[in-house]
Amino acid sequence: MRHQLLALLARQPAYGYQLKQGLEQTFGAAYPQPNIGQIYVTLSRLEKSGLIRGTEVTQEGKPDKKVYEITEKGTEELAGWFEAPTEGPRVRDEFFMKLILAEDTDLADRLTLINNQRRHCINMMRGLNKLAATERGNRTSLLLIEGAVLHLQADLDWLERCQEELI
């Protein structure tokens, strides 16, 4: 959740509860929403690592609240996240985050994200072809590779859908 919060703060400084609303508005019901406790825990970790800065705001008759803003270090971290291809079996979740959050940050554009991810998938596919060539004769291994190939193909088809809908 770190990068989602950083991306929201890259748009503008916000209170914790505003970040919760921001996540809800951005992703809608299809995405599992963190509770406010998880958000505050993540915020305090981000603050400790110097990626965001919190400022106490005194309010008449209410407990003091903290408004958070992204630091230069946080912006760098976020830019690096956008730039790196998304890896691992949870690709679709995390890549989708980037694609949606890229909109207002000025740190990445959607077509570049899609192109980089497509390149990454095709390079991985190249690796799987090579692997299949070395495993020729091992049926179990080949079946597993075929499963991975089908997953990658599905990722690429879905990237195409994202491109059709969002670009």
Binding site: E87, G88, P89, R90, R119, I122, N123, M124, R126, G127, L128, K130, L131, T134, L144, I145, G147, A148, H151, L152
Partner: peptide, 19 residues
């Protein structure tokens, strides 16, 4: 198209795609 590093071409390559 770029070749992924040779180290990737082991079981970790699969693990990267399938959970």
């Amino acid at each position: 198209v770029e070749e992924p590093p040779a180290a990737w071409r082991s079981a970790t390559g699969i693990r990267d795609v399938i959970d």
